[in-house]
């Protein structure tokens, strides 16, 4: 059962290995999802109020954007390292936050600008009409501007989720990378099957999450013109 022969006649994929490891694969997949998607959830919880604040007090936005840009340029591994002293190393329990907190910061670097852009995408006449009908600032932000920003926010969440799912695997270098564990496992044994399987699973997770978010947007924004986003 060989897919293709690599050097030395070793098959690129050994299907029987997959059959023997379904339990482990399922566990790693579940853990991977937890490590990747909790940051998106936390990121949204922080980014929405933060974006609203930046929309309300405009002077807040340039410094916030600056911080977001710097965060975006950090090597993920370095950021993981930074939190080892606080949450420890290894997989599961408290040590998971060594991965989750940095990935939350990364998601913020994508989500905050998107929340602000979304709020700014509200057409001026709509904002004016809301004010003129007697919406106060806060009520207008929450009932009018935020719902209109949803498509842009979800577009950001899609990018953040896909990168987050891919980035979790870097955590394997400090012993907690979900499916990424199999990269190092395969690499150290010169055995391609686990690397390919985990890569395929990670890509599949990313594409499925993306699909779920697209579906969520369709459901949440029936008012959006089809095809504009």
């Amino acid at each position: 059962m060989t897919l293709a022969a690599a050097d030395g006649g070793e098959p690129l994929i050994r299907w029987d290995w997959i059959g023997d490891h379904t339990g482990q694969l399922a566990d790693l997949t579940a853990h991977h999802l937890k490590l990747a998607l909790l940051p998106i959830l936390f990121g949204l919880v922080v980014a929405i109020p933060l974006g609203l604040l930046c929309a309300r007090w405009r002077w807040l936005y340039p410094p916030t954007l600056g911080v977001a840009n710097v965060l975006y340029g950090l090597p993920s591994l370095a950021l993981f390292m930074l939190f080892i002293p606080y949450f420890g190393i290894g997989s599961g329990g408290r040590a998971d936050f060594t991965i989750i907190v940095p990935l939350t910061l990364f998601s913020l670097s994508v989500l905050v600008p998107n929340v602000v852009d979304g709020l700014r995408s509200v057409p001026d006449p709509v904002r004016q009409a809301a004010t003129a009908m007697g919406f106060g600032t806060l009520r207008r932000l929450i009932q009018v501007e935020l719902p209109i920003a949803v498509p842009v926010v979800i577009a950001g969440a899609r990018v953040a989720a896909v990168s987050s799912i891919s980035l979790v695997s870097v955590g394997t270098l400090i012993g907690n990378g979900g499916l990424g564990q199999l990269f190092v496992d395969g690499y150290s044994r010169d055995f391609t099957t686990p690397i390919i399987v985990s890569c395929v699973l990670i890509i599949a997770l990313a594409l499925i999450s993306d699909g779920v978010l697209v579906a969520a947007q369709r459901l949440l924004t029936p008012w959006a013109r089809r095809g504009t986003r």
Partner: peptide, 19 residues
């Protein structure tokens, strides 16, 4: 582009090194 974004960089590197 979405597909390419989802490829784990480290995995691809270790795979190419191994192969």
């Amino acid at each position: 582009a979405n597909f390419a974004r989802s490829i784990p960089t480290l995995g691809l590197l270790l795979l190419v090194v191994t192969v």
